[in-house]
Simulated scan of single mutants.
Amino acid sequence: PLLIDAERVKRGIAQAIFTNSGCANAATGKEGMTDALAVSAAAAKQLKIPEEHLLVCSTGVIGRRLPVKKIEAGIGKLVKGLHEYGIEDAEAAMMTTDKYPKIAIRKGIVGAKDITICGIAKGAGMIEPNMATLLTYVMTDALIDAKALNTVFHQVIDSTFNAVSVDGCMSTNDTAVILANGLAGNNPLERAQARLQRFREMLTDVMAELSTAVVKDGEGATKFITIMVEGAKSKSDARRVAYSIANSNLVKTAIFGEDPNWGRILAAIGASGILLEKEKVSLSIGNVNVFAQDAPANIAPARLKEIFQGGNIDIRVGLGGGDKSYSVYTSDLSYDYVKINADYST
């Protein structure tokens, strides 16, 4: 499905997204492409739109072919059932291991008119940047130039969905789409306009709510972890350190077990591979300083234990080498994550 959509979005026009869950239709060769095109043609025909204006998305087990006949048999019923309040049904239908639906809405005045931005997402595992086994659809009635929309969307994705990790694993079917129909009738939004900033802020709110909901709903997750790295020479360095911590199984399991073993965080910082001056590195957890000037702080273990028992854990790292920063949101790694993924395909 990604190969088809990558070509179709180049035209800058899409009228519908057709999604199936349970089967990713990835690593299925020419037959998989044929299957996706067959579903696309059938759905476009029922919707009475050009096939090139329809996007197809799949999520589920990799390596299995789509049950095309079963899907085609249900398309007519789906189209007849379309209604203006169907967003909750659409979100629920594409969930796999998600525990709860993820929907976010913002309303505001942009370009002298009321506009709405609504987003839905599914995803709980295989969550790492460049998205993941994650589907995210955003819809707005704002009138906005296509180039401006593309620019803003990529900027917001970079600071939201491309800044989360549940398990450090990427998937084959990650997709993020934004559709704008212009029905709000606002003054057109273009890249050079100041009012585009208000649209960007609203879009950021929607995408941030959805992306953090994905982390909180991570497979087996019991903790929501915010990692902020500051004082880096470059954004790239800050990002490397943040992800080294976020994807460390030792850090994630310690947080799940509520074991304040902060030495694992320091080890992950060192394992990031960037050049460090150890005397300048600092670490705080939950606003409590635990390490600075190459030495541990004098803090009672019971206080750290109390912090680790909370549902939200904030980790702040100072590198002391510059003014660049980067934040990543992640979750812990629990027994349930192993159980869910040990028999996912069976």
Rank of each mutant, 00 (worst) to 15 (best):
Y137C: 10
T175N: 04
G185K: 07
K252T: 01
A148E: 03
S282Q: 07
D323T: 15
G286I: 03
P260E: 02
A295N: 11
I227L: 12
E190I: 07
K223M: 05
P67S: 06
N25I: 09
R316V: 13
P301L: 11
D145V: 00
D336E: 15
C23R: 10
A297C: 14
G310A: 14
N261T: 04
R65V: 01
A41Q: 14
M126C: 06
V281K: 06
G86L: 08
E91L: 02
Q155I: 10
V215S: 02
K216C: 12
A292N: 12
R106F: 12
A271K: 13
K280Q: 12
G322I: 12
I269F: 07
G318A: 09
A176N: 05
A44Q: 04
I299D: 09
N247F: 09
N130C: 11
I62C: 02
E219K: 11
G273C: 04
Y85T: 13
V152F: 03
T96A: 07
E52C: 10
E209C: 08
G168C: 10
F18S: 08
F199A: 06
A176K: 01
T253D: 02
S282E: 10
M202D: 00
Q15E: 14
Y137D: 04
I62K: 02
L3W: 09
C169E: 13
G22H: 09
A180Q: 04
T253H: 04
D141C: 06
S334V: 09
I87T: 06
L250I: 08
N341E: 08
V229P: 02
G123C: 05
T212K: 14
E279Y: 02
S58F: 03
S21M: 09
N25F: 09
D98Y: 02
F308V: 05
V290G: 08
N162V: 08
E230V: 08
G273F: 04
